[in-house]
Nucleic acid binder design. Structure first.
Lengths: 220, 220
DNA sequence: GTCTATAAACAGATAGAC
DNA sequence: GTCTATCTGTTTATAGAC
């Protein structure tokens, strides 16, 4: 054993990886793991891209983290660029879908609180994907960039709509809803740069601190 | 002329640079430009790092942008890592020095307004340096990272002190001064992601919008 | 101070064996 | 599906001519 636990990586140098014996698939052709290698490639790539940056990570490093040779990666992605794009698109689509499922029915102020708490919880639970989706925008080919940028704008527009409703209802003061939505999202996403699960404040504490600032910043 | 036959590099992506004929140094040895090449190397590196990322930019691309061969760059930096580090350290030190010069004498709320306006003005005037100093942290060697991280914390501490004074004086409500300082800086730095000088809003307009949100978020 | 040439390592991606 | 081997081009950095 000692392997097939997905993350037996040596990390510090991307070396060693030996073994990939999988008891439950022993009947398969030796070395064949199509059903689990795909997700592991994406997980390893996401982790490495977040840590070192897309351009600084080689396909060989990703392969080493997964426990396969570099050539095997091309069974799961046509090229490195598409691997990055799929990770980013997947994250943005999950973000939008999760918010659309969570969006409450109450008034604008309740919706703003829901957005604040949702954004903090969702983003801190997927720090690597959030980081990559923001930091690697400039490494996307133009066509791919346009797609991700569009999804990002969609998300901002969700918050912008909340702020507009609040302003129209008279419960909020928002001179520039579009700018305010970007400002608030930037503030909330900043949590990821310092929050640690083992830290002094619980996630509930963090939500409370930020919701207080968000509420005050737009309150009528 | 035509660039003293120096530049004129093909470089499909980073050409043009159209040599800078400097009349006052024409008497020098042909091809010798020590007094101007250094700054141009830093400017080109900053611009390229901001556009494409440190890891994605080669020394040859920087050289082509300057109009010299790659080997010549090593007269101005011992290596690529030091070039990045010097750019980031220079930016952070200038940021701190500029705020320390500008910091006003009034009460905490006046200081907060000054900080808000200063941060927006300074950062939008040096977008490339701001971008690089944040995005390339993970490409710094540990010792260099520690230096930049320390300078960044120093800057945050300046704002934190303002918020603490306001809270102590009773003119502000700030439950977590450290977190609030990071939240506000994240919000203000976000201006750089969308602000354009040719846009609908002037810099004064932008300052007013953000100052309104900042003030409301901490007002007692 | 800049050039040309080069060293030594590494990149993304592919071909064919098993 | 994975491996080994390889193709082709690029990387940082240095050496020595001018």
């Amino acid at each position: 054993m000692s392997c097939h636990s997905l993350g037996a990586k040596g990390k510090p140098g991307f070396d060693l990886n030996a073994c990939s014996v999988k008891p439950d698939v022993m009947a398969r052709t030796q070395g064949s793991h199509s059903d689990i290698t795909g997700p592991r490639v994406r997980e390893a790539a996401l982790r490495l891209f977040a840590r070192h940056g897309y351009a600084a990570v080689s396909m060989r490093q990703i392969a080493a983290a997964v426990g396969v040779q570099a050539g095997a990666l091309y069974n799961y992605t046509p090229d490195k660029q598409t691997l990055l794009f799929d990770l980013m698109r997947g994250h943005m689509e999950e973000l939008l879908a999760a918010w659309d499922r969570a969006e409450p029915q109450g008034d604008a102020m309740a919706a703003l609180e829901a957005f604040t708490r949702f954004h903090i919880r969702f983003n801190t639970s997927r720090a690597d994907a959030v980081f990559v989706s923001y930091m690697e925008l400039r490494n996307l080919e133009p066509a791919n960039f346009a797609v991700i940028e569009g999804l990002r704008r969609d998300y901002e527009t969700r918050l912008e709509a909340v702020l507009r409703h609040g302003a129209e209802a008279g419960t909020m003061v928002v001179a520039e809803p579009r700018i305010a939505s970007m400002a608030l999202i930037a503030m909330l996403t900043g949590v990821n740069t310092w929050y640690r699960a083992q830290g002094r404040l619980s996630l509930a504490d963090v939500e409370a601190v930020y919701w207080d600032m968000v509420r005050r910043s737009v309150e009528g």
